[in-house]
């Protein structure tokens, strides 16, 4: 089980996680091109929740009971057994926002820049460390890998 957890006491609200998430989900994966050259900009799947001095990067925490998956009417939100993560298939998403209703963390937001689909962290499963974690300057986002939820018994 791969999870990214947030430590709000050291989140500094710089939003570099959002920036690097966007880079990671861009076509070129080059920061300057991603922001300055690509026509269709990728949407960051992590969002810094901020209130005064308090802030934290909020993205999917890979709930043990993923109510977003349970609630999804289209099957777009699914549990990927291979990576042990909750994933979202925007192709299948119809934008009913049931997942938003189901996510008690408020980690899923509407992708208002692109299609009417939910914007959901994919845990950067292709990377050793998710982009947001790797670029967090203050270790406010931490990657946790625990085996207790492995499918094998």
């Amino acid at each position: 089980m791969r999870r990214v957890i947030a430590k709000e006491e050291v989140c500094i609200g710089c939003r570099l996680c959002e920036i690097w998430c966007q880079v990671q989900h861009s076509d070129t994966k080059d920061i300057i091109k991603a922001f300055k050259k690509e026509d269709k900009q990728a949407v960051p799947r992590v969002h810094v929740e901020e209130e005064g001095a308090r802030s934290f990067g909020l993205q999917c925490r890979n709930c043990e009971e993923p109510y977003c998956v349970y609630s999804c009417i289209s099957g777009a939100m699914y549990y990927d057994e291979e990576t042990g993560t909750v994933q979202h298939d925007p192709e299948k998403c119809v934008g009913c926002w049931t997942c938003i209703m189901a996510c008690h963390r408020g980690a899923i937001l509407r992708d208002e820049r692109g299609e009417r689909v939910a914007a959901k962290c994919d845990m950067c499963t292709e990377l050793e460390v998710p982009a947001c974690v790797a670029h967090c300057p203050n270790e406010a986002l931490i990657l946790v890998e625990d085996d207790q939820e492995e499918e094998t018994e």
Binding site: G13, R15, L16, F35, K36
Partner: peptide, 9 residues
């Protein structure tokens, strides 16, 4: 890239 990190920091 207008990310405004400098503004916030």
């Amino acid at each position: 890239i207008r990310c405004e990190v400098c503004v916030r920091q």
